[in-house]
Write a protein that binds this DNA or RNA. Structure first.
Lengths: 316, 316
DNA sequence: CAGCGATCCGTAAGTTCTTACGTAATGTAT
DNA sequence: ATACATTACGTAAGAACTTACGGATCGCTG
């Protein structure tokens, strides 16, 4: 059982579960000590009902105690079987089940109140003996997780790790095939490939690079997985286009990396601004552009049918 | 959901469970992020096997990760179905199922190791941001609960509370019936009622009080629930006998209270020592006597058949 | 007022453990 | 060597929730 020592904090989930199990077991004993015929799992329901004399609906109880409504429904059913509760449909709304303590249930309140006081004190004593404050630590962690879930924290690290295996390079002659495939792949999924597309995809050097543009390729573990072009519009303005990252490496932040590299490239060559055209149904892409600093603008109509949004990023 | 605020620390069990649920959900996402086909619940098993190249038995894994062997058995079955593990009976003992990672399983180790590192870091970061140290708080509480379980802590309070409703008084004429019933009740359960018993139980005043002894009665919420006699043996020595507490109020510490009162009474009347006779099958009683300070001695044979142990408590 | 989505609830089934139980293999005491 | 307790294991069933689903009922909309 030195498992926890070995894997350390990573096993915090299991550890919390185990500890909660310990408390559950203890609770069982405590409840039998006080001799009220109350199943420990009924306690939360009993408690909220004891301080809501006028009764509560299933959903209200569920929200109050943080269970699902189904769970409350089951507990209420069991407590009714012991005739601790009485239920009735409300007059105003025939859907809601108004639940309240029965007379039998109310007779338990004084004892349960005493029990609460004793248990509360005992736990306070327990927590006070510890060097670190478990109760506040739980509250802290709860808040911190709300602010930024663990998944996101891990993902940041994951990306950082994956980016070490990612490299952005300038277009090489052997990338011609990949440049085309990567783009066709996604255009085809959402739209029809247009003539303008094929023109550029088939002749990247003539159509993009020779006129003063650039093409960057993203390599992941040595393999081409993404691309993005910077097409010269005029002396000052460049278009970010033909951005594509293969599905296989989605979620590693490679899109962001190649986007940043393209903007960096634009700065290097003295561009005053970068613009792009896209479609609002490509939500992740739009989010990425926004993250890169692009703002939506209304410009002249696009040569592409599929575009319904224009964005730009001033560089000076 | 201000339930936790209202019931306070008493709901710590639920709170721990909820938090462990949050971590479990997060874990699910993290595991899918890294794309190893590993069910989060398999992780502990996978982990211990990854650092025990030579293989482990079901029970060994269970002990290591703190699950039941049945749980491990089920997990192993599932992992075998995905051919992540290989199992074989050992040569020395045909009962044990030697479990180890298969080749397929071993190929996951590097990725899982990376994942562990990332998750570990992320959680460390998370915990470091909190003001109180959750990890150490858990460890502290675990130790404190081992030392003195919650049940015991609550019980102390319960008894204290119940003792407020308990009162020890001197024998009154109207207690004659109760004095007899309380004693017959328990003697009858374990032994046969003897002639000596009946003599004293039927004539407590003549047999016990008039010869210089005392009888105390315990009242719980005004009702007689226990009794104990102090019988004069000679000028210096008194016998503690006829101690009985009704089942109904067992566990409230009333036995201890009445015992202490009897010893107090013995002190008052200048006794040099108190002795008693009992039977070792009455374990709770013996434990109580010990708690009162009595030590086992070997004395002259008892007039009661049922007695096989003698104890005494010097008062000076 | 018919139509339709939203809401409330109860039942069923699933999840992830656990305890209970039966079986086969070992140890051990007679 | 035979009987009996012990150990290791797997299966089944249970515990305490959850999610999924479907049936009523409501409120709104045209």
């Amino acid at each position: 059982m030195d498992f926890f020592e070995q894997v350390g904090t990573m096993a915090i989930g299991s550890r919390l579960r185990r500890m909660s199990g310990v408390f559950t077991d203890e609770a069982r004993q405590v409840f039998s000590l006080y001799g009220v015929g109350l199943d420990p799992k009924w306690f939360p329901v009993f408690y909220v009902l004891s301080r809501n004399e006028q009764g509560l609906s299933t959903t209200e109880i569920a929200e109050e105690i943080g269970h699902s409504h189904a769970s409350v429904s089951q507990i209420v059913k069991a407590m009714c079987a012991e005739s601790l509760l009485s239920t009735s449909r409300t007059a105003e709304d025939a859907r809601v089940n108004l639940i309240r303590l029965s007379d039998a249930g109310r007779t338990l309140v004084p004892t349960v109140t005493e029990q609460c006081a004793d248990v509360g004190e005992a736990i306070d004593e327990l927590l006070a003996e510890a060097h670190s404050d478990l109760w506040h630590a739980l509250a802290d962690v709860e808040h911190l997780l709300e602010e930024k879930p663990l998944y996101q924290r891990v993902k940041e690290r994951y990306r950082r790790r994956e980016l070490k295996h990612t490299e952005i390079i300038d277009y090489r002659p052997e990338d011609r095939e990949a440049f085309k495939t990567l783009n066709i792949e996604w255009i085809d999924r959402y739209f029809d490939v247009e003539e303008t597309d094929l023109q550029q995809l088939d002749h990247p050097v003539d159509e993009i690079i020779k006129p003063g543009g650039h093409i960057l390729m993203a390599l992941y573990r040595g393999e081409v997985v993404g691309t993005c072009a910077l097409i010269k519009a005029d002396e000052d303005r460049y278009e970010l286009a033909k951005m594509a990252v293969t599905d296989r490496v989605q979620g590693k932040g490679i899109g962001l990396l190649i986007g940043q590299a393209v903007i960096e490239k634009a700065r290097e060559i003295g561009a005053g601004m970068v613009f792009l055209e896209s479609n609002t149904i490509l939500e992740p892409a739009i989010a990425l552009y926004r993250k890169l600093g692009f703002k939506r603008v209304c410009g002249p109509p696009s040569p592409y049918d599929r575009c319904n949004i224009q964005m730009e990023l001033p560089l000076v």
